[in-house]
């Protein structure tokens, strides 16, 4: 279970039009850490020209320290090239293609130097009913939903309540135990990325759909105990992140994305644990 420091990898999946690119744009423009984003196509990513520092073939460097890489022919090669960089990113976000199975994409996140944080799969509230029944791509949709550790219904403001409730029931029947959030792209971006733990504050910020809680001074005997502690969170806790000290003085970076928990070694100071819960 213990791993050497590795770069966490988050996979964003979901069928065509579910809002992956909008989310990626939000992530890049509001980044507070060095993020490497891997996309299928620069053409659809709308990076503010003032943010672009340099463009070379398959990589765009941004002034805020982030990079955006086009996946090109081989995702493995892109990840190897990220490891070859002098300044490593703090997190990698991979945008799976609209027909990709996020689980197949996530399989690459186990390459030495990385660890897999989880798959967030977006479901388009306005299209999901149709897509899920489509004879050509219905199965693709189902595999995507089943690969999720956290499901997010997007464009909920464009769909009626009855449609949303139908979408919820389809998605829940495919993945009954996967946490499901109803969201817009901007709040999802901040939910996934901007978890800056504040050790002393009790409640850091509040969204309409979520509340954020920081548990300061979390300590655990060992990894097993820490893992069990995280596993016992209520299912309303859809995201958690923080650095926790073990009894032997070593520290662990813990992350929870929906139903998945990852624990890795870190040299960074303890921060407490930020929890984001559904209201």
């Amino acid at each position: 279970m213990t791993q050497a420091p590795r770069i966490p990898v988050l996979v964003i999946g979901g069928y065509l039009g579910a809002g992956k690119t909008t989310l990626i744009n939000n992530v890049l423009s509001s980044a507070t850490q060095r993020i490497a984003v891997v996309v299928n196509d620069f053409g659809s990513v709308n990076i503010d020209a003032s943010l672009i520092k340099e463009k070379h073939n398959d990589t765009i460097e941004l002034t805020n320290g982030c990079i955006c890489c086009a996946v090109g022919e081989s995702l493995a090669d892109v990840l190897f090239s990220i490891l070859d960089r002098t300044e490593l990113p703090e997190v990698v976000v991979i945008e799976a293609s609209g027909v990709a199975n996020p689980a197949a994409v996530a399989a690459f996140a186990h390459i030495e130097g990385f660890h897999h944080l989880g798959n967030v799969v977006l479901v388009d509230a306005t299209q999901a009913l149709e897509t899920s029944k489509d004879p050509l791509v219905g199965r693709t949709f189902a595999l995507q939903v089943q690969a999720a550790h956290l499901l997010a219904i997007t464009k909920s403001d464009e769909a009626t309540d009855s449609v949303i409730s139908e979408v919820r029931s389809i998605v829940s029947s495919l993945a009954p135990s996967t946490p499901l959030v109803l969201t817009t792209s901007a709040t999802l971006s901040s939910l996934m990325m901007n978890l800056a733990p504040h050790a002393d504050s009790a409640v850091a910020e509040t969204h309409t759909e979520f509340s954020t809680t920081t548990l300061s001074h979390v300590s655990a005997q060992d990894e097993q105990q820490l893992f069990a502690f995280l596993q016992n969170f209520p299912s309303s806790v859809v995201r958690a992140k923080g650095i926790v000290e073990l009894a032997n003085g070593n520290r662990r970076l813990v992350q929870k994305v929906g139903s998945t928990i990852s624990i890795s070694q870190t040299e960074l100071p303890t921060t407490g644990l930020v929890l984001i819960s559904l209201k």
């Binding site: 081989s74 493995a76 190897f80 197949a104 399989a107 690459f108 186990h110 390459i111």
Partner: peptide, 10 residues
């Protein structure tokens, strides 16, 4: 199995 796992043998 599949290139993702093969890539473990970097």
């Amino acid at each position: 199995r599949e290139p993702a796992a093969m890539a473990l043998a970097r």
